[in-house]
Computed example of a mutant assay.
Amino acid sequence: MSNGETQVHQFDLAKLTSPAGAVEDWARTFLQQRAMPTNLKSAIEYAFFGPGKRLRPVLVVRCCEAVGGDERAALPAAAAIELIHCFSLVHDDLPAMDDDDLRRGRPTLHKHTNEAMAILAGDAMTSLAFEAIASGIDDAALSRAVARELSTATTDMISGQIYDTLPAFDADTPPARRLELIHRHKTGALLRCACRMGGRCGGASAEQLNNLTHYAESVGLMFQIIDDLLDVTQSTEQLGKTANKDADQGKLTYPGVMGIDASRAEVARLRDAAHAALADLGASAEPLRELCDYMAVREK
């Protein structure tokens, strides 16, 4: 589909995201077996198991399946990337960062507990992500490759947060280029990582991994443009987090730089590019195509 033909009512979101349940089960067992202070474990569980799209772990599993792999092979990597994503949300919400009180329709972790616990729980989720990979993936070469993907993406994500909140761009860097650097790092890095880790867990060939990477780069940027659009078109109640936050903080956004209509046109272009990247993967990549179409029209 192209040119805005995607229909919201066509999506069976529960089916598309069904791997999320298996990822949560794997993560729950992993966390239950890991000795740590009770209050720290409770804080991590609050951040990890709260409501959420689980997009990154689902992409890990769906990309594994798209290249012929089994869901079970992808679960440790899927849990690991969700731990990193949740750490980033907990730290982003802190008073020193975005200073948010609401996340996924609930109090942010530092409001639910306190700032010290939120900082330490985020720290712990970072290290636990790599424990999950090391303990869950028996093949040493694959474990190293997956850990390398995730560590690189985590650093890139943090770089994106710097670009967004503590920028040090050259004076002649145009706003559109600054915006792309922010989004390709802050949001795109983990989405790209999810797809590449999934491909590796499924035994992808170099060509298949390249296809998944191109898909991820398109949907990663598209996802953030949609986030920017939702921030200016939806209410706090609809989003489950504070609306208009970026504009209020003077941050660069696609609607702010390009306008709403041009931003929507860019979403359509990126959606088509993502579909094109999957052309050689055939029917096994259909869930990835549907996830792309859903992400292009999501409303929160």
Rank of each mutant, 00 (worst) to 15 (best):
H9V: 05
A14Y: 03
G21P: 05
V23E: 11
A35Y: 10
A35F: 08
M36A: 13
N39W: 13
S42T: 14
A47L: 07
A47I: 04
A47V: 08
F48P: 05
K53R: 13
K53C: 13
L55M: 10
R56G: 00
L59H: 00
V61H: 09
C63Q: 06
C63T: 13
C63I: 11
C63G: 02
V67K: 00
G69F: 01
L75I: 03
L75Q: 01
A79K: 03
I84Y: 01
C86A: 14
S88D: 00
V90R: 02
V90M: 12
D93E: 03
D99Q: 09
D99L: 01
D101A: 13
T108G: 11
T108E: 00
K111C: 07
T113W: 11
E115V: 12
E115G: 05
E115R: 09
A116S: 01
M117R: 10
I119H: 03
L120Q: 06
F130E: 05
A132C: 14
A134P: 07
S135N: 14
D139I: 06
L142G: 11
A147K: 04
L150F: 15
S151W: 03
T152K: 09
T154H: 12
M157I: 00
G160W: 00
L166R: 05
A168F: 04
A168Q: 15
T173D: 06
P175D: 12
A176T: 15
R178I: 03
L179H: 01
R184L: 04
K186L: 01
K186P: 04
T187V: 13
G188F: 02
A194V: 12
M197T: 10
C201W: 03
A204F: 01
S205N: 12
A206H: 11
E207F: 05
L209M: 11
N210V: 04
N210G: 13
N210I: 05
N211R: 12
H214F: 06
V219A: 11
M222I: 13
D228P: 13
L229A: 02
L229V: 14
L230D: 06
D231R: 07
S235D: 09
Q238T: 14
L239V: 13
G240F: 02
A247Q: 15
D248Y: 09
D248V: 09
L252W: 08
T253I: 10
Y254D: 04
P255E: 08
M258V: 00
D261Y: 03
S263I: 12
E266V: 01
E266D: 07
E266H: 10
V267D: 03
V267S: 04
V267N: 00
L270A: 08
R271E: 14
A273D: 10
A276R: 14
A277I: 00
L278R: 12
A279D: 15
A283V: 12
A283N: 10
R289T: 06
E290L: 15
C292R: 08
Y294I: 10
Y294E: 05
M295L: 15
M295V: 06
R298Y: 07
R298L: 07
